[in-house]
C-alpha cells in the first residue's frame, strides 16, 4: 500500500514536467515537422525538401551559417578558456562570474542597439580611431562587427561550463604531472585540457547551436551582408507566408543540432568516466 502511494506520488511529481515537455517541446517540433510537408497551396508534398537540397541558394546559406557559427564559436572559445582559467585562480571567482553573467540579464535587442551606437560613424569606436589618426572606418555592417557582437553575446554561455569543469579538476593531477617532470605546457595540453574537455564541449554546444540561426544580428549589425538560415526562416514566415519552406529549414536545423549533440555528447561521457577514475 505504502509503495503504491509512493509510486503515485512520484507520478504526480512528474506531471508538470511531462506537461511542459509535451506542450512546449514535443508538440511544436511535431507541428514543425508536419508543416514542413506542405507546400504553399496546402498540398501534402516532399517538394520543400527537394527544393532545399537542390537549390544553390539554400545550400550556400547553410554553408554560410555553419561557417559563421564556427567562427563565432571559435572566437568565443579563444576568449573564454583563458578567462575561465584565470577566474578559477582569483580570490572571489563567484563575484567575477557574476559580472560575466550580468550582461545576459539585458535584452539582446538593447545590446545590439548599443553596439550600433558604438560602431557607427560618429560612435565611440570611430572617435578612438580618429584620436589615433586612422580616419573614420566602416565598422558597422562588416563581417568583423557581426562576429564580434555575436561572440560578445555568447561568451557567458561558454565561460560557465568551462569554469565549472576547471573547478572540478582535482589539483593533485596537476601536481602529479609536475612532480613527474612535465613542463607547464605539457601539463596543460596532456592533463588540464583533456580533463576539462567536457566543459569545452558543453560550451561549444551552447554557443554553436544558437549561432546557426541568429537573425536579428545579421540585419542590425551585419546589415544583411551576412546571411544565415535564420534570415531565410524569418522571410518565409513573415513575407512569403510559405510556412512549409520555413518549417523545412527549421527541421533541417534541428537535425543539424542533433548531429552536433551526438558528436560532442558521446565523447563527453567517455571523458567524464576518465576523470572520475
Amino acid at each position: 500500500m505504502q509503495r503504491k502511494q509512493r509510486l503515485s506520488r512520484q507520478i504526480a511529481y512528474f506531471i508538470p514536467y511531462i506537461l511542459w515537455i509535451g506542450l512546449f517541446v514535443i508538440a511544436p517540433v511535431v507541428l514543425l515537422v508536419y508543416q514542413s510537408f506542405f507546400d504553399i497551396n496546402g498540398h501534402f508534398t516532399l517538394s520543400n525538401y527537394q527544393t532545399y537540397f537542390s537549390s544553390n541558394t539554400y545550400l550556400t546559406m547553410t554553408l554560410n551559417s555553419v561557417w559563421y557559427a564556427f567562427l563565432i564559436t571559435f572566437a568565443t572559445l579563444v576568449i573564454s578558456y583563458p578567462t575561465a582559467y584565470v577566474l578559477n585562480a582569483t580570490k572571489h571567482p563567484q563575484l567575477w562570474l557574476l559580472l560575466i553573467i550580468m550582461p545576459t540579464w539585458i535584452n539582446l535587442l538593447l545590446k545590439a542597439y548599443a553596439f550600433i551606437g558604438i560602431f557607427s560613424q560618429a560612435g565611440i569606436a570611430n572617435q578612438f580611431l580618429h584620436f589615433i589618426g586612422i580616419a573614420p572606418q566602416q565598422i558597422l555592417f562588416t563581417k568583423f562587427s557581426f562576429i564580434f557582437v555575436a561572440a560578445y553575446i555568447q561568451i557567458p554561455f561558454m565561460v560557465l561550463p568551462i569554469y565549472n569543469s576547471i573547478n572540478e579538476l582535482n589539483p593533485s593531477y596537476v601536481n602529479a604531472s609536475k612532480d613527474l617532470g612535465a613542463t607547464s605546457w605539457q601539463t596543460f595540453s596532456k592533463v588540464i585540457f583533456p580533463l576539462t574537455l567536457p566543459g569545452v564541449k558543453a560550451g561549444v554546444q551552447a554557443v554553436f547551436i544558437p549561432s546557426l540561426s541568429l537573425f536579428m544580428l545579421t540585419r542590425l549589425i551585419g546589415g544583411n551582408k551576412v546571411i544565415t538560415l535564420g534570415t531565410a526562416i524569418e522571410e518565409h514566415f513573415l513575407t512569403t507566408m510559405n510556412w512549409g519552406m520555413g518549417s523545412t529549414i527549421g527541421v533541417i536545423l534541428i537535425i543539424a543540432m542533433v548531429i552536433i549533440m551526438s558528436l560532442t555528447g558521446g565523447s563527453k561521457r567517455r571523458a567524464k568516466r576518465g576523470m572520475t577514475k
Partner: peptide
C-alpha cells in the same frame, strides 16, 4: 498569388546572398 510572391522573395534572397 503566393507562388509569385515566392518568386520575388527567392530572387531577392539570392541578391542578398550575392554580397
Amino acid at each position: 498569388a503566393p507562388a509569385k510572391v515566392g518568386l520575388y522573395n527567392d530572387r531577392y534572397l539570392e541578391f542578398k546572398l550575392h554580397h
